[in-house]
Every structure is written in C-alpha cells, then in structure tokens.
Simulated scan of single mutants.
Amino acid sequence: MPALQDPASEDPNQPDFTASRVFDKVFADGMGLVEKTASYLDGPGRDMSKSLPREAGLTYAAWSMQLSTQLMLAAGWLVMQRAVREGDMSREDALKKKYRMTRDGAPLDPSKQRGRGLPDNFLDLVEESENLYSRICRLDAALYQDGRSSDQASPVMRQIEELKAAAEEGAFDPLRVWGGSR
C-alpha cells in the first residue's frame, strides 16, 4: 500500500500549511533554536564576552542584540501561526501588516567574522538564526502574498481554475477563458 503524502507539506501556499508536518518541524526547530540561543547568551556567552578584545566585544554585543530580536520575532510568528491552526486567531487577523515577517536590512554574515575574535559556537548560532529568519520570511511571503491569504486566488490561479471548469464542462474555449481577464 503506498504511503500517503501530506499535500500541505509540499507547498506553503496550501491554506492548511500550519497543519502540516513541515510547519511542525519549522516550529520545533525554531523554538529549539530560541531556547538554545537564550541558554548560550545567558550562560557561556555572557562569561566569554567579558574576555573578548574590544572590536570583537562590540560586534558580539551588537550581534547578540540583533540575534535576540530576530529570534523573538521568529518565535512570535511561529506562535501566531499555531494560533491560526488551533482557531485561536483568524486568518484575516494574521493577514495584518503588523504580523508580516520581512527582512529590513542585510543579514548578518558570520563567515566574515570567523577568525576575528568571536567564538565559533556564537557564530554558528548567528548562522542558524539567519537561516531560520530567512526561511520564515519566505514562508510568510508565500502564505500572505501582498496582504492576501494564500487561499485567495491570484489572477493566474483564477485562470487555471476557469480552464479546469471549462474542460470539465466539455466546452473548452481558451479565447473565452482568457478574454475575460483582459
């Protein structure tokens, strides 16, 4: 018997993406990274930062603040998506601009700091955080394109649906289908 595939796990544009295994994995990975980073920054990172040379110490302070902010935004987005899934928040509320995840500035580039005084385990956390944040920004864009829920059809998707309907009716007239959208 063939294994059933979760269709939402393949395409973040599916309205039930938050019910997918992919979302569950992103959620677990994201929240795990938040916890791991907080433990590092409050423990070994704090102790280590006191012994850094001046330039590396300044970079560490700035980056750790950006890292914390980024991870809190990511965690907030993940929790919001779970609230949508569980019915505690409507998709319409989730469409609001204040909940969108976008990158305003350039990402931190830990590869340029390697060998310049910052510990590798800190730079690894920065890299993981940047990857998570970028992934969430892409998911957000796919789910909430231009303020529309992904279940609202784009012009292309409307045309595809019209073509399917015309084919099912047996009266397929491409000029009628495409002519109506001009």
Rank of each mutant, 00 (worst) to 15 (best):
A167F: 00
Y40G: 06
E35G: 11
L132V: 03
T18I: 04
G179F: 06
M48N: 05
R54N: 12
F27C: 08
D6V: 01
G87K: 02
L139P: 03
T69G: 13
D146Q: 14
Y40C: 05
G57P: 04
R148T: 07
R148K: 14
R114A: 08
T18H: 11
L78W: 02
D151F: 09
E10I: 10
N13P: 02
T59K: 15
G170M: 07
G76R: 09
S111W: 05
L125R: 04
L41G: 04
M65C: 07
A166K: 02
S64R: 13
Y40N: 07
V34S: 04
P174S: 09
G147S: 06
A75C: 04
D24A: 15
K98R: 15
A106R: 12
P107D: 07
S181V: 12
D93R: 14
G117Y: 03
S20G: 05
D16K: 05
G147E: 00
I136L: 15
E128D: 15
S134I: 06
A3I: 11
L52V: 02
A28Q: 08
D93C: 08
E169M: 11
D47H: 03
K164A: 09
Q81W: 04
A167R: 10
K98E: 15
S134A: 13
Q159P: 00
P44S: 10
Q152R: 14
D11R: 04
A166T: 01
A28F: 13
A83T: 08
R158H: 09
A74R: 01
M72V: 11
R54F: 11
D173I: 07
D120N: 11
M101W: 03
S68F: 01
M89S: 02
L52P: 02
F122I: 08
N131H: 12
L71R: 00
L52E: 02
G45D: 00
E55G: 05
V22N: 12
D88P: 00
D88W: 05
G179Y: 06
D93M: 13
L73I: 07
G180N: 12
D104Y: 07
S9E: 00
L123M: 06
D140S: 09
K112E: 00
